[in-house]
Computed example of a mutant assay.
Amino acid sequence: MKNAWNEKEIITYIKKDLLQEQLELVDADMTLADDEPLLGDGRVELDSVDALDLLVKVEKAFALKIANLDKDFIESSCRSIRSLTDFIVAELRQQERVTAD
């Protein structure tokens, strides 16, 4: 996709491109808050397969490599749209630091 992402673009990409268009988990007319829960009792309610699929798509879209897709990681990174965004931002910043060195 792109090289430089800002937080707002990441959130929009997660909501529209990943959850709505690619995974078809959200209707086009559904408005999601940034702190919308992705697991459990939220409106999205990802199951474990959906969460893995979402994370694989995140890896591809943002050119990331997630080392360990275990249950604890999935529960923390996919807790909400905000937590997933925070993970992506942190990973992109880490990549920038490694590339700059």
Rank of each mutant, 00 (worst) to 15 (best):
S48P: 10
S48T: 07
V49G: 04
V49A: 12
V49Q: 07
V49F: 13
D50M: 02
D50W: 03
A51E: 01
A51W: 04
A51M: 09
L52R: 08
L52K: 00
D53V: 08
L54C: 03
L54N: 06
L54P: 00
L55G: 09
L55R: 10
L55K: 03
L55D: 04
V56F: 15
V56Q: 05
V56A: 11
K57E: 11
K57H: 14
V58T: 02
E59S: 06
E59T: 08
K60A: 14
K60D: 14
K60E: 15
K60T: 13
A61N: 10
A61C: 06
A61Y: 10
F62W: 03
F62G: 01
F62P: 04
F62M: 01
A63Y: 00
K65V: 12
K65T: 11
K65Y: 13
I66K: 07
I66T: 10
I66P: 01
A67L: 13
A67S: 15
N68V: 14
N68H: 12
N68M: 09
N68Y: 08
N68D: 15
L69G: 06
L69D: 04
L69S: 04
L69V: 06
L69A: 00
D70W: 09
D70L: 01
K71T: 12
K71S: 13
D72A: 14
D72H: 10
F73W: 07
F73K: 06
I74G: 07
I74V: 15
I74Y: 02
I74C: 10
I74N: 08
E75H: 13
E75M: 14
E75W: 08
S76L: 09
S76E: 15
S77T: 10
S77Q: 06
S77Y: 04
S77I: 03
S77H: 10
C78S: 03
R79A: 15
R79S: 15
S80V: 00
S80C: 03
S80P: 02
I81S: 04
I81G: 05
I81W: 00
R82G: 05
R82W: 10
R82Y: 05
R82P: 07
R82N: 10
S83L: 02
S83Y: 06
L84V: 00
L84D: 03
L84W: 02
T85C: 14
T85P: 06
D86F: 11
F87L: 09
I88C: 09
I88T: 05
V89A: 12
V89P: 07
V89Y: 10
